[in-house]
Amino acid sequence: MNKTINQKAWYFVIPVFVLVAFNAAIPLMTVVNYSFQETFGNNVFAWEGTRWFKQILLSERFHASLGRQFAFTFIILLIQIPLGIAIALTMPKKGWGVPVCLILMSMPLLIPWNVVGAMWNIFALPDIGFLGYTLNSVGFDYNFTQQPGDAWFTTILMDVWHWTSLVVLLSYAGLNSIQPAYYQAAEIDGASRWATFRYIELPKMKKVLTLAILLRFMDSFMIYTEPFVLTGGGPGNTTAFLSIDLVKMALGQFDLGPAAAMSLIYFFIVLLVCWVFYNLMMKNEAQS
């Protein structure tokens, strides 16, 4: 059989090509451009080679914000994933409770990010905010604008409030896809509640949990708006996570070269962690 030669199909690829070009490739190349050169405005560039990259990688400021970033992401994953699963397990499976729970759960996800930040800022103010005032009146010396520990506590609490729902919804979907026969079989075997969770629910939720962890990792690693509105990176630099630090460098100090280099390093870290994570998960998948 002769294959019909028709190259017109390539035209169908053009929209995607254009979209990706303007959406990702061209902006990224601009950043790459800045990262290797020094500029003083007026479109005058001077070649700097890998100087900015070396500078960033060796700078203590970058190490500190990277460390804060990993700590933050690690802590919120540690809280949100188990909490999300736990909430999903207690949600009703049928009846009027299902829509009620689902809507309540989706609420925080629907609120714009800077609104979340503003909300929590006011909520946590030690003099007038409900949370801040209450904590102080029961004897805690709480002030998130001045004490780093309190600032971290508030930021983490805000993120848990904002994003645990996502883990809940994903886990709930995973749980609902388990056929009732599995539970019956476990019941007949006399398996305990914990064994049912460990050997039926958890393995069956593996795929959605992988997705949840990956999404929460990426989102929290790139977090900007909420802490920016809540603490502005302060007090001092104690809650300046990577993207907050990056914006300070790029727009505050107008160090475009180092900021571009930092962006690329930042991007590669996210890419690398996702790649490692994905491969580990897939390797597990292939084994089982």
Binding site: A181, Y182, A185, E187, I188, D189, Y199, P203
Partner: peptide
């Protein structure tokens, strides 16, 4: 749990991350 019965379903119900041996052994192990 208090009755001594077992059931096989239309869907193939086994513990997904147990081996066949562990699956068959599970009611006894418990």
């Amino acid at each position: 749990q208090k009755r001594n019965c077992s059931m096989v379903y239309q869907q193939f119900i086994n513990y997904p991350n147990y081996t066949v041996y562990e699956n068959i052994a599970s009611p006894l192990a418990i």
